[in-house]
Design a protein around this nucleic acid. Structure first.
Lengths: 264, 264
DNA sequence: AATTTTGATTGATTTAAATCAATATGTTGA
DNA sequence: TCAACATATTGATTTAAATCAATCAAAATT
């Protein structure tokens, strides 16, 4: 655990001790007893960081915590595969994960990138408990596995939790719908612009940003061939829209790129 | 109301009077007091026909029934529009409805076709209560509008209902995901085959079937231009895969068409 | 019945993007 | 340090599908 991370935690602790929000004192007691790991301090971490898990009460939190476990992955490793049984809801503790559909002739389609403290998996929940996409690490990554049966119990006992979970499902769906239109109707420059804006603004939340995606990943994200993606990227570079430096990409003309994204 | 429909109802009534399933006697009492219309006998109809609404108890059913109303549409009429507030969950009582995304330059993308006793709307539920697609009638259609606040109350009070609703959301999502891959990876013949198989097997559930979709609708369903769709359809006809007669299409070689769908 | 309008069909042409092929650059491992 | 391999880039060519332009057929309107 880095020093920065440690001091950050201490700061949050102090702030919360003086606030009455979320029954902090009670939660503190549970926290001390929870299993801890390198990457998180038990479900209380999520309880504070995730708008979903913060809705659980002590008892529910303990239930979720009971069977949870963490796994680390190196870049490129698969976390779960499309078609297999969905036995856990996953929470990304650190790193970056890609969710993709395995299509025809070995062609994949990256649906979205997951960043820390976001949930994934569970699309088959209450349906047929299967995974409908594959998840793979893009980085050194740690993932927390929450038993799906325990999760389901919480959905049943806690209406706020159920509502928030439905919100999560719908938010993801709505995002996928927007990508659906983008990939079927925009042409190459618009789709490449979308991918760059998505990474800078939503995923890495910095500009310039260091990409851990391969060109192949980018291609699967924009539903283009690798070569076509590279060509458009080069055009953007030649036009001064972006600056590339090693693994870093900087969006130099944000407004111009947004315009390309909108025009399609 | 047609005679066939009437006798069908009487038959169901008799069968249920002798069964102990679903507290039928209690429900009968409510039924008599419920608002009735040409197309349905109040929410009890749904209570019997929909796997979702059949999970509601008397009280919840009465709540849902309180503010519900029915509207009829002629072919082509819009039911709700993408971007507007989602104030109701809708249940199709008769006819056929297309759900489509409004994309760029007036191009639409038909997500799915809804058939009677299926629910639609509510994708923005618990999220931002907006409609993320447009719904329009493909036929003479009647739709039952259920107040979204009443629906939400049922989700909170009835965990079985909540679970079934999540199942519905996930089932739809999973279908959309499969279409996502199909439309971005298959080429024209595969997509046209998909559309024909979908209509015959899932929507009209008959072969031959009478199409109420225009060529433009087909194009928006396959993400092709109208002309390209027509060309492939003609190819299929020339090859004897399908037989066309007026508004009717018959899939003559089901296995061959399925093969084309799979190959892409 | 004649006319206008709308939707469906067919053909010719253009365009976007994939594929194929070659080269370059970077990484890993002996 | 250099080979072996993977990944990235660039160029030439092909292909799939859109667009453009007519024509045809079927409704709707006068």
């Amino acid at each position: 655990m880095s020093d920065r991370f440690y001091y950050g935690n201490v700061l949050i602790l102090c702030l919360l001790l003086f606030s009455k929000k979320n029954n902090f004192k009670d939660k503190l007691l549970i926290m001390i007893n929870f299993k801890r790991s390198v990457n998180c301090g038990g479900c209380n971490d999520c309880n504070m960081k995730s708008p979903l898990f913060s809705l659980l009460n002590e008892e529910e939190l303990a239930l979720v915590n009971k069977d949870r476990f963490e796994v680390s992955y190196r870049p490129g490793e698969m976390i779960f595969k499309q078609g297999t049984a969905s036995t856990h809801i996953l929470m990304l503790t650190s790193g970056l994960v890609k969710l993709y559909l395995e299509g025809y002739n070995g062609k994949n389609l990256i649906l979205k990138v997951v960043k820390p403290h976001q949930m994934f998996g569970g699309r088959g929940l209450f349906y047929d408990n299967r995974n409908y996409y594959t998840a793979a690490s893009l980085d050194n990554t740690t993932v927390c596995f929450v038993n799906v049966e325990n999760f389901k119990k919480c959905v049943r006992t806690n209406p706020d939790f159920a509502e928030k979970f439905i919100e999560h499902l719908n938010r993801t769906s709505v995002y996928i719908l927007s990508r659906f239109v983008d990939l079927t109707q925009k042409q190459m420059p618009g789709r490449v612009a979308d991918a760059l804006l998505y990474l800078a603004n939503d995923i890495y939340e910095s500009n310039p940003f260091k990409v851990t995606l391969s060109r192949q990943d980018f291609a699967e994200m924009t539903s283009l061939s690798k070569e076509s993606f590279i060509r458009i990227l080069k055009e953007f570079k030649d036009e001064g829209l972006i600056v590339m430096n090693g693994d870093f990409i900087e969006i130099a003309k944000m407004d111009a790129l947004k315009k390309i994204s909108q025009v399609g």
